[in-house]
Amino acid sequence: MAKLTTIKEAISLIKDSATVMVGGFLSCGAPDKLIEELAAQNVKNLTMISNDTSFPNVDKGKLIVNKQVKKLITSHIGTNPETGRQMAAGELEVELTPMGSLMERIRAKGAGLGGVLTPTGIGTTIADGKKVYELDNKKYLFEKPISADFALIYGTKVDKFGNIAYFGTTRNCNTVMATAADTVIVQADEIVDCLDPNEVVVPGLFVDYIVSAKEETLAEKTLEASVSGEASSKKAGV
């Protein structure tokens, strides 16, 4: 079951050369506090899998500016000139992947599949060096699954069972990343005792650690008390 912990302790699990998925579409739904701590602990030689690299010195962009990433698998780097600079200088290896293929490759790992057949990229440089299958007169590119040691994801509301609910467009790639990493850490805007099961977007079984985005304003003890306090008294209201 998911364990409530501090941002510092959760991030200290991540060692140099780890592969880390990071959720968020630009800054929307990015686990900014977890990323901040990863930057503070200065873990190096990371392989990062993310939709984008946000902006310089903003969430995911900090890890780039801080030169903590040696390899990046992503769909778009246009919002962060530093990513492009490091790529051009040969300091950072970048694998650009169509966004839909990136998501399906992550899903393939999470779903226990051996890969994905997609029409995306056929006839383009994305197909270079990849197997092409023709099925019913249509060509498909074989794309391999992507896994990670860690997934750092965001949740608007998370309950102590690890169940996650989202507001607005924050869910983006957080949901699929939750399924594909060995250790999943979720940063919650709000931690509640128990979510309405109808609200849950990511089932709690995928989540290993829960941290509060507001922990700097809360004593750790208070947080733990508030989570465990009424745990058994409330039923999962529908």
């Binding site: 492009g84 650009l96 169509p98 966004m99 839909g100 997609t118 029409p119 440089t125």
Partner: peptide, 25 residues
């Protein structure tokens, strides 16, 4: 009916984002 809208060799390429999937689908 081919489309080129994501990359110019020798210039900074921001990435295709979702464009390749979208055009195919």
């Amino acid at each position: 009916g081919n489309l080129a809208n994501w990359s110019i060799p020798g210039k900074f390429t921001p990435g295709m984002g979702g464009a390749m999937d979208l055009v195919v689908g």
